[in-house]
Amino acid sequence: MISFTSYPLQLDDESFYGSRQHHPDAAEDIDMDLDDEQELFEAGGSKNLTYPGEPLTSSHAYMRGHGTYVNDEEVIASVAGTIERVNKLVTVRAIRTRYNPEVGDLVVGRITEVQPRRWKVDANSRQDAVLMLSSVNLPGGVQRRKLESDELQMRNFFEEGDLLVAEVQAFFSDGAMSLHTRSLKYGKLRNGQLVTIPPILVRRLKSHFITLPCGVDLILGLNGYIWVSKHVKESDQEGEEGFDAEAVYSNQNDRIDELTRVAISRVTNIIRVLASHFVPLTDTLLLEAYEWAVDQEDGAKDLLQDDVGDLLVAMITTRRQ
């Protein structure tokens, strides 16, 4: 189980985290003017997490958003999480929450049920996602019509327990998200390991497909599911002619050499350590962390020791300052 601790992080322009700490002698000095509140949010506090019931700011200067409520002219946090401010709107993003999908998001999921002409997918959301038979690549071309014979062979493509990467296509009337894998970069996942972290720690990047120099591929699902696998060379053919159904829907893992296995384990443990210290993941941060771990010449499992993990996070925090 992943535990969360507040650890000082360097702020950047794209995200905002801050919190207030009150001295007992100054508890009555709550009312601040607008300039003081502005400095509070821009400078940030000495910690990055807020707890339920903690006063955040004056309700006169800011509007309350999700995760907050107003009491005695103050905006109060109603959940444990990180503070975010957009103009005059203050919100708290909960640490432990289900993934809130948006159209175009890349997600990693697990097949939970095979139904007529569709699959149910666990995507760490409030309800299972749906992958329609018409939304996957099938042998014979992407655009061909799905026949009754395809419906009878659905378990040859995906069955219960299979992992896949897909894109959020739309939403049904009940709020369930509809997925699609109509691209050669989407589909069944093999040759790797799944890591689960809070969705709040996965930032929106230009590309969520990352290749590290150590021969490891990463898929950062915005739903908090991260796939760490052996590097696979991209096919030169991206059209329908390059579609190999047997390879795409195969359940057989490739042979993975010992060095690649160690690299996968090291990257996996790095992600677990960063998540336990509530550090948002980016491609550059993961690369820096891996290079540091290799320089230490420790085993992959040593990263899970408290002292080594603390040193790793301290190094990341120092470089980001």
Rank of each mutant, 00 (worst) to 15 (best):
T68Y: 02
E148C: 04
A275S: 15
Y290T: 08
E42F: 09
F171T: 02
D306K: 14
D25C: 11
F158A: 09
A170Q: 07
L9S: 05
S59I: 01
W119A: 01
W292Y: 15
R261L: 15
A123P: 01
H66F: 06
W119K: 00
R203H: 11
E288I: 03
G67C: 06
D29A: 15
E240D: 15
D122K: 02
Q153V: 09
V107D: 02
R272T: 12
S135K: 07
E258G: 10
R203D: 11
H22N: 02
W119L: 02
A176D: 01
S173Q: 11
I210P: 00
G18N: 09
E73N: 07
S134D: 15
K188D: 04
D306W: 11
E39Y: 13
D122N: 08
Q237W: 05
H66C: 04
A247V: 09
D13I: 06
E84R: 06
Q169V: 02
L312P: 07
E74H: 09
D105W: 03
Q305S: 12
S134V: 11
V136G: 02
N137Q: 13
Q153H: 13
S125V: 07
E160Q: 12
D236R: 06
D283T: 13
I316F: 04
F16T: 13
L147W: 11
A170P: 04
P116M: 04
Q169L: 12
I83A: 05
Y225F: 13
V168E: 06
F41I: 05
D13M: 06
G140I: 08
P101N: 04
K301Q: 14
R64C: 03
P139T: 02
